[in-house]
């Protein structure tokens, strides 16, 4: 029976170790504490062009992450890109006339959505749509515009 006790202690230690590893991976390495358990509300916005925006990209207000992109789809009526995003319930005082734009972190970084608050009394709620949007800068279009202007001024 002494042997059995030794086995039990070791297996207990082993399981404890792996639980600690799981906790370490969850809280230190990944974003577990981030958006899973806190209440959120969902809003959407229509963009002409989302560039390289991906699902799970952050939504930032003054550089602070306040939410995430949950889904990107094509709006069947306007043929524009509809971007759904979840915002942390802690930020539930955002004016309804806020604007969103697709920005790039750094020169070569990932794209994210930046939110610029407006001045309305009404606030964004579950299911609201943000009307004012600014699409992603697409490098080819910029160069194209530049070339057009360049040739016109010539």
């Amino acid at each position: 029976m002494k042997k059995q006790t030794k086995i039990e202690i070791w297996v207990g230690a082993f399981v404890l170790m792996s639980l600690m590893a799981l906790a370490y991976l969850a809280f230190q390495v990944s974003n577990f504490s981030g958006w899973k358990d806190r209440p959120t509300y969902e809003v959407s916005a229509l963009f002409d062009n989302i560039g390289g925006l991906k699902e799970r990209a952050p939504l930032k207000l003054s550089g602070v992450v306040i939410g995430r992109i949950t889904a990107i789809e094509i709006d069947p009526i306007s043929f524009k890109a509809r971007v759904h995003m979840k915002i942390d319930q802690a930020f539930n005082q955002l004016p309804v006339d806020s604007s969103v734009s697709i920005l790039t972190s750094g020169l070569l970084g990932d794209q994210y959505v930046g939110l610029e608050p407006g001045g309305d009394e009404e606030v964004l709620q579950q299911g609201s749509e943000i009307e004012m949007t600014q699409s992603a800068m697409v490098l080819e279009e910029l160069i194209g515009q530049f070339l057009v202007k360049f040739s016109e001024s010539d």
Partner: peptide
């Protein structure tokens, strides 16, 4: 090191 890691690593998708 840590902030880059936790912003990139997703609990569900990766862990």
């Amino acid at each position: 090191f840590w902030s880059q890691m936790s912003s990139q690593v997703d609990w569900q998708e990766d862990v």
